[in-house]
Design a protein around this nucleic acid. Sequence first.
DNA 1: GTGAAAGCGCTAACAG
DNA 2: CTGTTAGCGCTTTCAC
Lengths: 342, 342
Amino acid sequence: VTNLKLEDIARQAGVSRSTVSRVVNDDPHVRDDVRERVKDVIRRTGFHPNAAARTLASSRSSMIGLVLPRSVSSFFTDPYFPRLTQGIAQGCNQNQYTLGLFLVGSKEDEEAIFPRISRRGLLDGVIFQSGELGDQLVDRLVASNMPLLVLGRPFSTEGISYIDVDNVGAVYQAVTHLIQLGYRRIGTIAGPGDTTVGIDRLEGYRRALADRGREIENALIVETDFSEMSGYYAMQGLLRTKPDAVFAASDALAIGGIRAVREAGLRVPEDVAFVGFDDLPIATSTDCPLTTVRQPVAELGLHAVETLLELAGSESHTPRRIMLDTQLIIRDSCGAKLKRQG
Amino acid sequence: VTNLKLEDIARQAGVSRSTVSRVVNDDPHVRDDVRERVKDVIRRTGFHPNAAARTLASSRSSMIGLVLPRSVSSFFTDPYFPRLTQGIAQGCNQNQYTLGLFLVGSKEDEEAIFPRISRRGLLDGVIFQSGELGDQLVDRLVASNMPLLVLGRPFSTEGISYIDVDNVGAVYQAVTHLIQLGYRRIGTIAGPGDTTVGIDRLEGYRRALADRGREIENALIVETDFSEMSGYYAMQGLLRTKPDAVFAASDALAIGGIRAVREAGLRVPEDVAFVGFDDLPIATSTDCPLTTVRQPVAELGLHAVETLLELAGSESHTPRRIMLDTQLIIRDSCGAKLKRQG
DNA sequence: GTGAAAGCGCTAACAG
DNA sequence: CTGTTAGCGCTTTCAC
């Protein structure tokens, strides 16, 4: 609106600039009647302190950045990111912080964006979505000395704070569930081997089988990216090994896999049972509702903000590690209900 | 990293602060050898100018805000928003701008966020996603005198710049397509009547029928929100009026509608043809690929940024109106291929 | 083409 | 509890 400054409010309220500043910043050292008088003027004039001046003087910007690297090109297909962003935005709102969004689309973007991120006076900290191996942005971020929290286990964790869902544990539980249902040939459509999510989920599968004395059969493992189409093709390959159950590292993969199974003239879950990962909205509304692992994505975002702010507020540089629990949602595709009835 | 300032660079390069500032800002009035010398020091030291100081001195923040109001609670289910955000982020990157994301989750959020948005020294302009009727945030934004571009036709357009896809024209084309295929009873699952998208798409339907001399039958129109479930229920109602074709105001609605049709023992497109809107990724991979309207969502975002920056950069307050064309993607669900063969 | 100087609007000691 | 003062680090006239 207008270009009021502290001084103008001060004059109108008959106090000094500092007093107005104190009122604006909820400093308790102001007499109540004075505070009210100042607040009145502020309300009446619609005054808002200038963000840049405040940042410059206090060296806190009240803004954090969310950086999604280009390897996460699936930003617009995978519902994970919107939900995550939601959670982070909510965390920002709760803490009176502003969220800066940095979508790195290309190598050139990276070069253009990095200075803006690491520039002092813009961000108080950064939340970085861990992507695939060889992403050097993390290292540069670490080197820039900016408070940093990585979402998802990074490849190199030394000195890095990160938050993640317990992928290994989640899949362990899911595959154990399949074992307990009596399936003998449990395959997996695994995620990319050059991402920590992919690696961790596969590890969960391996451990679950190993702990029950099952042999790991490499032919029952097929590695691919997280998309539905990939699930479809991967399953076509997997079918040749005649699995009776499949753990898919994402719901999209599961849906693609189920499509392949049906095209082969087989039924889900009678001939091949499925467990997915994500609990997408469609997971419920497919004609064979998906048994799947639900991860607390929004909570992840919320915790990420909280943790980052703690990190940014404290002197200690002890890395923080946070792991969130998941939940196995049992529906029809794993065949549990069927077996119980039968 | 370090806390260098212009002065430090100046000293090391043996020039004045102003010269370094000129180099940093690509001011041509610097001798080439001096420029190189300064740039060397900058590179060597990894210096980045302080954003807040720069903003304070120049009163330009090189940052714009994207505001998604709470009525758009579908942020995490509708792929529209991720794609839009993508486009906007890309536009920001191209123009060396930073994107601030403001997700308004609740009425309280709105109160907390508004001051941050309208606070001077934070944003150079705002892109606002138009939501439902009665959203007062637009008015407050307009009143705050901040450069503003609305995404989607706002309810009150006076003096407001906005960008939108040609919803009326798009649906007109889609419904005309159905008419030309010979369908006699064309119904519509329309979007919410308290949003301009909903209204405009319904208007396109009406005009297409009217222009071909068809009577508008209210029983063939059912209004609901944009979700798949709503499409399902809406279609159950619509089936009683025995439509032979349906225009659904979104792909999600279409998918829900198709589900209802099949459950009623009818076939798509033989018994009921469908045209959707959005061209979601799943639109291709359903077993009856969806004929649908594709909107250039990412381009919308890109143009939005460009336009906003023009707006912010010029003194003229003449509102800008931009309308983007859509494209009808013909697949199987409209029955065109069927009829051509048959 | 380059430097000196005057702010931008706020915070944060420090007196009182 | 309140006012005075000294910057925060940069841009931007204005001289030279």
